[in-house]
């Protein structure tokens, strides 16, 4: 095992220990659905290859918005953390598969209580088909399924079941469809533009909170569409490749469903600015930092929503012969 491998293992071990300690110290509780949308692209190559990715994401949810207007003095503060492990397997240039295992930590504080939860989220399996991938253009389509493996019975200090949005899992089968394309201009060979669109069809949890004496409630998160355009620039350094990235992301989410009815104060439109920078010392390894800032929202009713996101990602490819796409 090389020194870098050891360091990676050490870092992951520390993160895992942190997560375990969070779990032990948590007052019990919350978070719903890990944000896997921006994390789905799979590396492909001429030959079979495995790659492993770990992503940490911090979601600060402290922006109270009614329709288009920001509202001050909300008594709540919320944030979420996601820890995603992703294993990719590329069969050939065309076909690749991915498995994602998330862990989710969420915190909801008011002036009178502090609640947090940590637990395993819903597993996802994704299949990606690369329609073409060349030096200057690429087009992928992918489809996936999210299984209800996540924990949906996080309880508060009082042992009362926390609300669905505070759970690690959704309790439903969800379906994910995605397409992405990129184009590099021959006149600017280090600049790549890209676009992606994702549709997430969310299923219904028909027995959220059910017990032997309570039938539970029906709940579903709203279906959603995410679209993003952006550009990244490949800089060659002595020690590797540095790739800054800037984009524009539009998200639409339908109302959540409670008891088959549209839940008030859910769904809407979000426009945000994703930023990122990644560094790859070689073709096998890369590290990336991301941020996302809200630009505009038009929400249904009053919602507490994302103020900013920060992310950190490590990629490691185990067998690598020749790939075109080092950095996602």
């Amino acid at each position: 095992m090389s020194g870098i491998q050891k360091n990676i293992i050490k870092t992951l071990l520390l993160i895992a220990l942190f997560m375990l300690s969070e779990n032990m110290n948590a007052q019990t509780c919350c978070a719903a659905g890990a944000p896997i949308g921006s994390y789905l692209e799979i590396q492909t190559g001429d030959k079979r290859l495995f790659s492993f990715q770990f992503r940490y994401e911090y979601n600060n949810v402290n922006r109270l918005v009614e329709n288009e207007n920001r509202i001050e003095n909300d008594p709540r503060t919320r944030y979420g953390q996601s820890f995603l492990w992703k294993l990719d397997f590329s069969l050939n240039k065309k076909l690749a598969f991915s498995a994602i295992v998330p862990f989710v930590h969420q915190s909801r504080n008011t002036i009178s209580e502090q609640q947090s939860s940590f637990g395993i989220g819903d597993f996802s399996f994704i299949t990606q088909y690369t329609h073409f991938k060349g030096r200057f253009r690429s087009l992928n389509i992918s489809a996936g399924i999210k299984f209800p493996t996540g924990k949906t019975n996080h309880r508060a200090d009082s042992q009362i079941l926390l609300s669905p949005d505070m759970q690690s899992g959704t309790g439903s089968f969800d379906f994910i469809f995605r397409s992405s394309a990129s184009k590099t201009f021959s006149s600017l060979p280090f600049l790549t533009s890209y676009a992606s669109a994702l549709f997430r069809l969310n299923g219904m949890n028909n027995d959220f909170g059910s017990t032997s004496t309570f039938v539970g409630r029906q709940f579903a998160f709203g279906d959603e569409v995410n679209s993003q355009i952006g550009a990244r620039y490949l800089l060659t350094l002595k020690s590797g490749f540095l790739t800054p990235d800037i984009g524009l992301k539009i998200r639409w989410a339908n109302h959540n469903l409670e008891q088959q009815q549209a839940a008030p104060n859910s769904g809407g439109y979000w426009l945000s600015l994703p930023l990122g920078v990644s560094f790859a010392p070689n073709e096998k390894k890369s590290i990336a930092f991301t941020a996302e800032l809200p630009l505009y929202q038009k929400l249904s009713g009053l919602q507490i929503t994302t103020a900013f996101r920060l992310g950190f990602q490590i990629n490691y490819t185990f067998q690598k012969n020749k790939t075109d796409d080092i950095l996602n």
Partner: peptide, 11 residues
Amino acid sequence: DEVLDGGPGKD
């Protein structure tokens, strides 16, 4: 089991 968390939290 029929005491439900409405979402916003206490206060």
